[in-house]
């Protein structure tokens, strides 16, 4: 019989290492036995489930049928107006949001969210850009709103996946959110032919970015963190 030198427990005769602390078993007196049965079987059974990809493929075909029918009908009914694009864009949005994730083996929340954002932006462009004030409305209001919301969600996802959250990380989080909002606003306002002057947002963005670097450092450094804790307790 072998004992773990680390834990003090007796180990099974077949054990090569301690099940509690992984310390290897070294017992020169132990005889090598070939037909010894381990206390537990070493063959796992991983049950087979319904293949997600197969179901997703069927749903994709179901999505395809009305779209193909609409494209075909568009040649005969009101051919000067490309109305099939509305059906196609709606289907594409639904497919990317609800079906596409099932084609991936492991769900990547960030990547999925990027796809979703692009799909939403395209959908809004196709469906509403022409009806609600044209491209200026789209690039000036719709796209910035979608981009800001999306980036905030991405950062929120990142933040929620972090295990340890010190109060300095919460402050850092606020400033990163602000940087995202101001940067996107600056870019969009610049491209939207200066509806509103973007200079003020550029200054705000630079200030927030500087603060982000400070809080990033504060978040990493134990010394700064304890100093801040000492000086700024409420």
């Amino acid at each position: 019989m072998s004992y773990c030198v680390n834990c003090g427990v007796e180990l099974d005769a077949t054990a090569k290492k301690c099940a509690l602390c992984d310390t290897p078993v070294y017992n020169p007196l132990r005889k090598e036995e070939k037909d010894v049965t381990t206390p537990f079987s070493q063959t796992p059974v991983i049950p087979t489930n319904i293949k997600q990809k197969f179901v997703a493929l069927i749903v994709t075909y179901i999505f395809l049928i009305p779209n193909l029918v609409c494209i075909f009908l568009n040649f005969f009914i009101n051919p000067e107006n490309l109305w099939f694009i509305y059906v196609l864009s709606s289907s594409l949005l639904c497919w990317i949001v609800f079906v596409f994730p099932f084609f991936t083996k492991k769900l990547h929340p960030y990547l999925m969210w990027v796809f979703d954002t692009v799909a939403i932006a395209l959908y809004v462009f196709v469906f509403h850009a022409k009806n609600l004030g044209g491209e200026k409305w789209y690039f000036g209001i719709a796209l910035p709103t979608i981009a800001i919301t999306s980036l905030c969600v991405v950062y929120f996802l990142y933040w929620i996946r972090q295990r340890k959250r010190h109060w300095t990380s919460k402050v850092l989080h606020i400033f990163i959110d602000l940087v995202i909002i101001f940067t996107v606003l600056c870019i969009c306002l610049y491209f939207a032919n200066h509806i509103i002057t973007f200079d003020i947002f550029l200054v705000l963005d630079a200030c927030c970015l500087a603060l982000v670097f400070f809080w990033l450092y504060a978040n990493k450094s134990k010394k700064v963190r304890s100093w801040l804790g000492k000086k700024m307790f409420v």
């Binding site: 773990c4 834990c7 427990v9 007796e10 180990l11 099974d12 054990a15 301690c18 099940a19 509690l20 206390p39 537990f40 079987s41 070493q42």
Partner: peptide
Amino acid sequence: VHVKIESNRE
């Protein structure tokens, strides 16, 4: 207490 350990870990 004398304890003997068995596990399904590889």
